[in-house]
């Protein structure tokens, strides 16, 4: 359990740095989705299944959908 938790914590920091430093906006939006997905497993390891379910549905699903729709409307932006 401890190993999984520490690997996921380091992975989430790395993916956050990638999300804020990449030039392509679509890449950074998808990286945010992966960031939230790693948080889901961290919450399950920390014995919070309710928070994990809401994070999986809201932050990984709906918020990414909002971002992608917004990027779809902002064509021609780097």
């Amino acid at each position: 359990m401890g190993i999984i938790l520490h690997v996921l914590l380091v992975f989430s920091v790395l993916i956050a740095i990638f999300a804020v430093s990449t030039k392509n906006l679509l890449n950074s939006v998808i990286a945010m989705s992966v960031f939230s997905a790693s948080f889901v497993i961290i919450f399950i390891v920390l014995q919070a299944p309710d928070v994990a379910l809401v994070e999986a549905v809201v932050a990984t699903g709906i918020t990414t959908g909002f971002f992608v729709i917004t990027l779809n409307k902002l064509e021609g932006v780097k």
């Binding site: 956050a16 999300a19 804020v20 906006l25 950074s28 939006v29 945010m32 960031f35 939230s36 948080f39 932050a59 918020t63 971002f67 917004t70 990027l71």
Partner: peptide
């Protein structure tokens, strides 16, 4: 959009 992503990271 990057600013909104930063706010999301703080919230998480």
């Amino acid at each position: 959009i990057k600013m909104v992503i930063g706010i999301n990271i703080i919230e998480s």
